[in-house]
Design a protein around this nucleic acid. Structure first.
Lengths: 211, 211
DNA sequence: CGGGTGCTTGACTAGCATCAAATGTAGTGG
DNA sequence: CCACTACATTTGATGCTAGTCAAGCACCCG
């Protein structure tokens, strides 16, 4: 009976064929609702169906640092051990699907592929962050968000300025200033009461900024 | 015959039981010798036996960014696809052991565990880098190096100042200034003609700096 | 001795954090 | 309908940190 086996267990002893998941019911979440917290026992991994999730840690000094945002189709919650090392929260109205380690039913989840994808994301983020200049980082962020809405004239970032700041290692003020710079350069427009709806005016200029 | 299968192949199609490795002969490397380069076909993963390896990328502007240093026992070279996305070089006299995907012989390699370990490393590094203040970053780096030599009075970092700078997203000058500050604070001594041999004087003070 | 390399130090500057305040929008209650 | 609060974003003024440019030092080797 594998039902109580945790994700961490087969991450640690991954010599075994990954147990097939039992497809659980999707979970609907309100904005800022917690999915799991640091220190908890890791029982499942998740796939985002709609909306977005933020994965973050709190430093000893209480500062929040957002490791990643997960959008539609992306996986999160895979840990090295069987204890959560970070927090997961819904950014907005979100629906996620949990997968637990249980008896073989359907096709097994490709945990290795998920881990490698997340690793590639984390490495790319390292480059973005150290690639100093606040404007570059914000441009890279906007580009990343735009890639999630291919072909759309406009899209909603959904994250607050402080989410973006904690993601990019900047302050809220600096992020706001960068957005106004991007507007002044006619790279994008911001709409919506919270100015989170982006309309890209000059995609090439945006890309040029991230280089 | 799986002999020509690449790492990327079973990373992408990882639903299969990881092929058991053929234990290849160790490779001895001189300082700065290349192990693989961006764009090459990924044929093997490696484990460090002695010495150290730097994994890095070059930005479009030609800047080097070091993603990680791999020390004794650590694995590198596992890619999402079958093409190298980064460079690997020996930092110093180094011996590594390659593992190729070939017919089942010995125990299979736990690729998932390797991927998750590297992911955890990458995430930790994100925190270190965004945790502003050059001194904190350098302190965290020294601590990381010290952890690789538990119980040793002294140890050789082996990396040059510019390696450290490219790893932490700082400049050589800033790194040097931080080391002198650490000396002034009597946290450590530096010995050797290249000032790369560290003697920790106040481990607690070092840890306090990284918080 | 001269040149090369890697580390350190100094002077100056640009860019981001910090502190503070203004703006805009929505919601509440009189 | 308007005053008032609450919240997120934006803007402004100022200081500090790390980057930049430049020079100096220590060591090694031909």
């Amino acid at each position: 009976m594998l039902h109580d086996q945790t994700i961490g267990d087969y991450a640690a002893g991954g010599r075994h064929y990954p147990p097939a998941p039992a497809r659980d019911q999707p979970i609907r979440l309100k904005p800022d609702e917690t999915i799991y917290s640091e220190g908890e026992h890791a029982r499942a991994i998740y796939q985002v169906e709609t909306g977005a999730v933020r994965i973050y840690r709190l430093t000893p000094s209480g500062q929040r640092y957002i490791l990643s945002f997960c959008g539609k189709g992306e996986w999160f919650g895979l840990e090295t051990g069987n204890v959560r090392t970070d927090f997961a929260e819904a950014v907005c109205e979100t629906s996620i699907r949990p997968f637990r380690a249980s008896q073989n039913t359907a096709a097994p989840i490709d945990l290795l592929h998920i881990a490698l994808t997340n690793l590639a994301k984390a490495q790319h983020k390292q480059l973005v962050i150290t690639e100093q200049s606040a404007l570059k980082r914000v441009a890279a962020f906007v580009f990343e968000m735009a890639e999630r809405h291919p072909g759309a004239r406009e899209f909603d970032m959904m994250m607050s300025r402080s989410d973006i700041a904690d993601y990019l290692g900047l302050t809220v003020e600096t992020v706001a200033r960068c957005f106004t710079k991007l507007r002044e350069k006619h790279v994008l427009c911001l709409n919506g009461k919270l100015q989170r709806i982006v309309r890209l005016l000059d995609r090439d200029a945006l890309i040029a900024l991230t280089v």
